[in-house]
Design a protein around this nucleic acid. Sequence first.
DNA 1: AGCGGTCAAGTTGAT
DNA 2: ATCAACTTGACCGCT
Length: 303
Amino acid sequence: MIRLGLCCKFAAEPIKFFTATALHAGRLSPAARRAKLAGLCRANAAALMRAIDYCADNGIGCFRVNSQVLPLKTHPALAYELKDLPGGAEIVKMFRSCGALARRRGLRLTFHPDQFVLLSSAKEAVTAASIRELEYQAQVSGWIGADVITIHGGGAYGDKASALARTAKALGRLSSAVRSRLAFENDDRVYTPADLLPFCLANELPFVYDVHHHRCLPDGLSLGQVTRLAIGTWGREPLFHLSSPRTGRKAAEARYHHDFIDIRDFPACWRGLDITVEVEAKAKELAIKRLLTQMSKIGVVVR
DNA sequence: AGCGGTCAAGTTGAT
DNA sequence: ATCAACTTGACCGCT
């Protein structure tokens, strides 16, 4: 069965996650700052509970958690531990409750750190900051039971082989909490499935197949080939990404995400697989609702 | 309530 | 040189 995943937020449903800007938080007194951050973290834990229930109630089998669910958690100047915030222990309990709820309702949870998180850089500061962010997301993953943290290859710096060698070396610096969840996804500019599949196999990491990125940046491998090879990197339910390009006359616009998924973009060879497909569409839960309807019409079984 | 300027972070390629 | 894209426009001060 196919499990569809919602990414980070809702378009229409009144479930909101909050963040804070570093400039503003940094201007507050330490006590006011801790109170502000605690309030945001608590509100986000509560929102995550409702997000889990919404997904489970609406045929959505997976939810991607926003990287800022604990706002500014690893900011160089403002980093904090939840236990040092007012009510922090209780907030951790709320996240553990999210984990229990997700388990009970059969919902898969994932993370996808943003573009600043990469292990290929030659700059130590960039790698160190990325590792801090990965460790934070792995810690929350432990509380809520998220099993995947997906990142991209990052830059190539004119020499992809060297960049991948640096990435492999950085893997040795990760805790087992990160290492057991980390996955690599092909992007639309630099790293193709052909680049990352051998890397993932060599390092025993799962490969997240983004079919839209592959269509933007092809590599000679067919969709069917990558699908089969990607599945082989997973010892558990594979995770794939799906989106549709915004209609536009310029070729460059093909990369922009559409509000909805065009059912014709759903690979025929994915039907009948036991996989999670994270849906990257701007209309969020509305796009999944429409996709579910269309998939049932063509006979694809969705949970 | 609504508006506009602003926001932590890396890298790439189009313009 | 600037800007948009990348999983996600949201926050905040001002009116």
